[in-house]
Design a protein around this nucleic acid. Structure first.
Lengths: 176, 176
DNA sequence: GTGGTCATGTAATACGTTACATGATTTC
DNA sequence: GAAATCATGTAACGTATTACATGACCAC
């Protein structure tokens, strides 16, 4: 139900159309919760049926501007305060690590080296966002920066891990 | 397709039934790729249809023991070496951070404090695994330990982040 | 013979991705 | 008037979760 609450959270900032919301997702939330246009459409209709949002304006080009309702704010708040986050740290990249034993040591090291490079690219990207985005003092930007910092620290830790892991697989014969 | 390759990777270690594989998932892979019994059943049949595994033994209690085929090993290898991992770092916990601005500062700090505690619990769990598991020198255990280390370092980074973030939201009036 | 564990399978539901369909408005 | 952009919606497909169904074998 995270998409649902993502939409409510964005609408808590002010009314928007599905199209606007898609861009907000792509600008700010894409690194933590990507969403596609074809998901927003039905989800917004569902939120409207449930009374969590309402159409506050209908413009040209079929545009429907949605606003959050009191019931929507209550649900958002309830989700944030009462519902414990699901931690489902599925990681395909890490799953592969378990199976590196089926490769030659050189190939395994190659995989870890590529991992390190990929995390470095991700870190560069996030640091660029941090340094180049026009951060305001608004609550949205403040917490956006805090979320970004989480990604930066995680990426940094994973770079070090991948380099350590590559080194760890060197100079050691495989066991039975 | 990670479940598929997770099964192939486990079978690369030796033949097993779906039931055995479920336990292997729950023992070793659960932290990176949880799987349920009802997923394994159809996936193993599909792998058998595709010639990636084969039934090498049928025992009592409907038990079917699967072994990986050459085609299965080839697919596993191809996946590991050629297919770049999907990095889909969806994080519900981090999504919430964006919306903490809709709460009172005290409540927002409470959320971050709970996050820190949750990550600490996760770290404790992983360190306990590291210290208590009977690690052998086998390739499986070596890379399992390397994967575990990734979780430990990530958890440590996230604890520090959550504590930093909690402090960051103190002593500052919210902007517009 | 009863309860526990081994063992596989199906069905309903939910969520996410990709691709496609449709049409209005603006810009050149 | 053609192309780009705005704007919403549907359909097909793949995958994950939960719950349920079925039955064999073992230990007591």
């Amino acid at each position: 139900m995270s998409l649902r609450h993502g939409l409510l959270g964005l609408l808590a900032d002010g009314p928007a159309s599905g199209y606007d919301l898609l861009r907000r997702f792509d600008n700010s939330l894409v690194n933590v919760w990507p969403a596609s246009q074809s998901q927003l459409s039905p989800e917004l209709n569902k939120l409207a049926r449930d009374g969590r949002v309402e159409v506050v304006e209908e413009g040209g080009r079929h545009r429907k501007t949605y606003g959050i309702t009191e019931a929507g704010r209550a649900e958002l708040r309830h989700w944030l305060v009462e519902v414990p986050p699901v931690r489902a740290p599925r990681s395909e990249a890490l799953l592969r690590v378990f199976f590196l034993r089926t490769l030659d040591p050189d190939e395994a090291r190659g995989y870890l080296r590529k991992e390190a490079a990929a995390y470095r690219g991700w870190l560069d990207h996030l640091e660029q966002l941090r340094d180049e985005l026009p951060w305001s003092d608004s609550g949205f930007d403040r917490f956006g920066r805090i979320a970004l910092e989480s990604g930066i620290r995680t990426a940094a830790a994973l770079i070090e891990w991948a380099e350590w892991a590559e080194h760890e697989t060197e100079h050691r014969p495989a066991g039975p």
